[in-house]
């Protein structure tokens, strides 16, 4: 099938095309959705390799459900965020129950970065990730989806299967906790004063 304007095709239509044997639709869906899944998983898990595994697994579940997908009932992206959130929660639980995974330790800053600003930006992102890692799972999911993925509260409520009010409460508490955790690194972050 020829796609004159791929951006104009909704996700669920692409999923139906894939279910009917269109490989191009799978590539478009991967290009469109996988980076978002990877970002969510990386923020949730704080580990790139695990996030890639979760992304592959989440997309695999999308391919599996494609023939049974009912158009118009749910957004594909919302469904995928939800699957990703559940997969990340499972991995975090397993991680707590087992030994420390060396892969889960944040990678050190690349000493080869040339610019001071790039280094400081990297330090800020690392600090944010470390603070996120200390939040309870649900708070972290809500904060990542709301403030880093930019989703609205109703969509987050659908992803986490909770009420909109509960999402507001989770994000507010998560944000307060982050503010406390990052306060000690105010100078490192370059936000002092």
């Amino acid at each position: 099938m020829a796609f004159d304007d791929p951006d104009a095709i909704p996700d669920d239509a692409l999923l139906v095309l894939y279910a009917n044997g269109d490989g191009t639709a799978a590539r478009l869906l991967t290009d469109r959705l996988a980076p978002r899944v990877l970002a969510q998983a990386a923020r949730m898990l704080g580990d790139r390799a695990e996030a890639e595994d979760v992304t592959q697994e989440a997309m695999l579940r999308l391919w599996r459900i494609a023939p049974d997908w009912r158009q118009g009932e749910a957004k594909v992206s919302t469904w995928l965020y939800r699957v990703t959130a559940n997969l990340c929660t499972d991995r975090l639980r397993r991680r707590r129950g087992g030994t420390t995974d060396l892969d889960a330790i944040p990678e050190p800053a690349d000493p080869g970065l040339p610019a001071d600003e790039a280094l400081q930006s990297r330090a800020r992102m690392d600090a944010l990730q470390e603070a996120l890692d200390q939040l309870p799972d649900r708070q972290r999911q809500a904060v990542v989806l709301r403030h880093l993925e930019g989703l609205g509260n109703p969509e987050i409520a659908a992803i986490l299967d909770i009420s909109t009010e509960a999402v507001e409460s989770l994000t507010a508490r998560g944000k307060r906790a982050l503010a406390r955790l990052l306060a000690a690194r105010r100078e490192d972050l370059g936000y002092d004063g």
């Binding site: 490989g23 799978a26 991967t30 996988a34 592959q56 391919w63």
Partner: peptide
Amino acid sequence: DLPPGGAEGLPPGLSARILADA
């Protein structure tokens, strides 16, 4: 640690694995 947005930012290995599954 952070994946970029957009199709071009997806690691090639991951993209290939996902499409192979599909």
